[in-house]
Design a protein around this nucleic acid. Sequence first.
DNA 1: ATTGTTGATTTTGTCGGACATTATGTGTAA
DNA 2: TTACACATAATGTCCGACAAAATCAACAAT
Lengths: 251, 251
Amino acid sequence: MTQPTNSNQQTHTQAAGETLETLPPGSTSRDVLDALSRMIDREGLRIGDRLPPEVNIARRLGISRAKVREALTSWQSMGIVVRNKKAGTRLAAEVAANAIHLPVTMKLEAESLLRTHAVRRPLEVEAVRLAAQNRTPKHAAIITARVSELMAVYDAGEDWRPADDRFHRAIYDACGNPLFEQLILQIQQGFKEVYEAPLGKPHLGHETIPLHPLLAQAIAEGNETEATRLMEEILTMVEAEIRQVLETKND
Amino acid sequence: MTQPTNSNQQTHTQAAGETLETLPPGSTSRDVLDALSRMIDREGLRIGDRLPPEVNIARRLGISRAKVREALTSWQSMGIVVRNKKAGTRLAAEVAANAIHLPVTMKLEAESLLRTHAVRRPLEVEAVRLAAQNRTPKHAAIITARVSELMAVYDAGEDWRPADDRFHRAIYDACGNPLFEQLILQIQQGFKEVYEAPLGKPHLGHETIPLHPLLAQAIAEGNETEATRLMEEILTMVEAEIRQVLETKND
DNA sequence: ATTGTTGATTTTGTCGGACATTATGTGTAA
DNA sequence: TTACACATAATGTCCGACAAAATCAACAAT
């Protein structure tokens, strides 16, 4: 009864399977969290699983325990991990109500892709509506410029995602409410991590790009109705793509 | 040339104005953050202002610097404070893109009430729409029961806010996507803190309560159009109330 | 007088060690 | 088998020290 499912690496200095990824000296706390994220992926840890003791992590990453603790504190404050005295640090079963960190929660719950998209949809649509409503000539000019960039890159067959990001950020900027950008970017970030990395599907939304000039024009003209309609259409297409990928993945 | 604007309390043990609030030994990191919050309020610190050095805070609170650092790290990861080497720890001018903790950010930026409401609106409306779309008989029954409670309390002239919370939570539950509840509750919590506490306006949305039975009925019937229309109407009324309060406050 | 430089100082960043605290587990005795 | 006592392992907390960096002040140079 005593052997845990994963090999007993607690007392030894290092077990065989442990890849040790030494962090460079100037690493920020964010780097530590990224390294921890990779560690979680590598070892296939799930919700409720324990991660290695702090001293162990520190040794493996080549940093001090204080730094590990600081990083874990950050996650703890987001409700991602739960720490107990002897029980160790475990991935939280459910995210705390007053905290959220979508990238990790989503990574732990891949099936929530559609759910996340459902949350993103109303925010994106409202951001577009507000952008069309509150646009200034300056914002309109920026949006027009960005969509030109985007289409140039797209027509050239290159990677259009950075240009797409810039275009949409210009929209969030034009809507005049930074909270929208905050929330959407947060959701988007988690979305990308869970979608592009493990599923290897980098070109999600490819078919929606031709609609983007129309969207830009509608915003520039202040046509709320048309702008929101187009955004809805774009998001619906993306959603259809997600469903398709999920279905083929279930085979 | 050597005297800074605020009295020179750096080398001395304690200056005159410093209220020292010793924390009990068993204090959790949350307690430290609360104490820091009070300290910020007491000293009237604004966005961009520095808070005392870590060693200073530690002394004043009667805890170790490590504990202060852990608490500040938590805030840093939420983008509430920015730390620099000699510049000290300052209240963040703008929230980091990858983190969010609305309760505190809103408290620091009272004028963002309307912005926050603008973000909340599309989420609430979409949640209602999804609830009407995906409702089950069980969910419909719960919502009906909750709205009966609410109206009973409301008609009796008692405090209807807890019942209102339960009603809306039933809606979030019925929409079938826990992310909506997460995000909305987060926003709501910050909203309440900044609204009900300092402005002393506990009965925001009082006039919208009579609309709630209609909303419940629309959801139960699966009438998406009517349900979203009512929710829009409710939120518009709330927004009008907010504007009114802000105007009267500017006198 | 203005500008550039240099150096001291302050403050956060990082580390290591030590001990406390608390579950967990284990062994022993009734 | 059950109950209790004890060892153990992990986080929690504290301390002290030094590194790194940014600010400020004094000074020098043009």
